[in-house]
């Protein structure tokens, strides 16, 4: 059965930005350098995780975030104390961007006692009450209702905090997403729904799975506004995020941001990614890489020299190596932990 549909756009050089077509506002030296460091940390962390998976140190499922770094890093800049973040199973980038310790995250991946969940959650199930990170959820789409519940709690308490609820183009076809949209719009809950459209729900491309491939329109029947955003450009993410978060803080209800992004690696470590061409991946890598974009601007604006950036690279590598070291040498959880934390 051949269904002719226009393919969802690969993130292109002409950014959709925040729905207005204009180039995104510049972030300036300090912010760009911070973004560079954060994105690089995620990239190097994920590369290391992939390597450690290959060495058998990480088991089970491991979903890498490489290629999508600008989304979480840009959105994190829009938040304030008390805001909440929740996502699905491709969650390492979210955790690092909200300030969770790379050692604790990596040790969770290796199933050690120093992991965020004492080794009992693994790659897909980590939390940090302190950092406002509510998981880390393994059931596709479940986090959308949960994130709506976080927003419900903000609304109930009468504060102006916002829930950032991340999910993918695959989860966007789950029924509970629309049940949640309905309630969020009905009750004007402060939740930004971030649809990370990386073009593939595991091995199924967006146009093979979705009748409406413009996910920013998925809230239309609930009157939820939505923008399509160039998720490879941290400036565009930040600009769109600011607008959406402000919308929620001021009590206007939910907002949808479709982040046009791309994952370079397979769905999980065991995915050979035969459903797309090497050329497709290579094209995005060379033309739209989120880290290279920042790097180019930093150099062009002389915000830092090549040598200074190399120093940042070395610092990030040191952090990641330390995390890898820790997570390799940290002992497994004590056997008594088998029966703890079932009920309080």
């Amino acid at each position: 059965m051949a269904i002719a549909k226009k393919a969802s756009p690969i993130p292109s050089a002409s950014p959709a930005t925040n729905g207005q077509g204009a180039a995104p506002p510049e972030l300036g030296k300090a912010v760009e350098l911070a973004a560079y460091r954060q994105m690089l940390l995620i990239r190097r962390f994920e590369e290391k995780a992939g390597q450690m998976y290959g060495m058998g140190l990480i088991g089970g499922f491991c979903h890498l975030y490489i290629g999508q770094e600008a989304v979480v890093v840009g959105m994190q800049m829009t938040l304030k104390e008390g805001d909440q973040i929740i996502t699905g199973y491709r969650d390492h980038g979210h955790m690092l961007s909200c300030g969770m310790d790379p050692k604790g995250v990596m040790a969770e991946l290796t199933g050690r006692r120093g992991g965020y969940s004492k080794g009992k959650g693994g790659s897909m199930h980590m939390f940090s009450v302190e950092k406002g990170f509510f998981g880390g959820h393994g059931i596709v789409g479940a986090q959308v209702s949960l994130g709506t519940g976080l927003a419900f709690a903000n609304h109930y308490r009468g504060n102006d905090n916002v829930s950032l609820t991340y999910f993918g183009d695959g989860a966007a076809n789950q029924g509970q997403v629309y049940e949640s949209f309905n309630m969020a719009a009905l009750w004007k809950l402060p939740v930004v729904y971030l649809i990370e459209n990386n073009r593939y729900a595991m091995g199924t491309s967006v146009n093979r799975a979705s009748a409406q491939t413009d996910f920013s329109k998925r809230g239309l029947s609930f009157n939820i506004p939505g923008d399509q955003v160039d998720g490879m450009d941290v400036r565009a993410v930040k600009a769109a995020g600011d607008k959406a978060v402000e919308w929620c803080r001021s009590g206007k209800g939910p907002y949808i941001l479709e982040m046009m992004t791309y994952r370079y690696r397979g769905h999980s470590m065991s995915d050979p990614a035969k459903y797309r061409t090497r050329e497709e991946v290579e094209k995005v890598r060379t033309e739209r890489d989120p880290i290279e974009q920042v790097r180019a601007r930093v150099i062009a604006n002389k915000w830092a020299s090549e040598d200074e950036l190399k120093k940042v690279d070395a610092e990030v590598r040191a952090i990641v190596n330390e995390a890898a070291e820790f997570s390799t040498n940290d002992p497994e959880p004590d056997v008594s932990e088998l029966y703890t934390d079932i009920v309080r």
């Binding site: 929740i86 976080l150 509970q176 049940e179």
Partner: peptide, 26 residues
Amino acid sequence: PKRVVDTPITEHGFAGVGVGAALAGL
């Protein structure tokens, strides 16, 4: 009405909203 909340007929969704609110401390 803030503390006694009528939901739409949407069990999967409102169960998730309830759980999310509980994770947030309500």
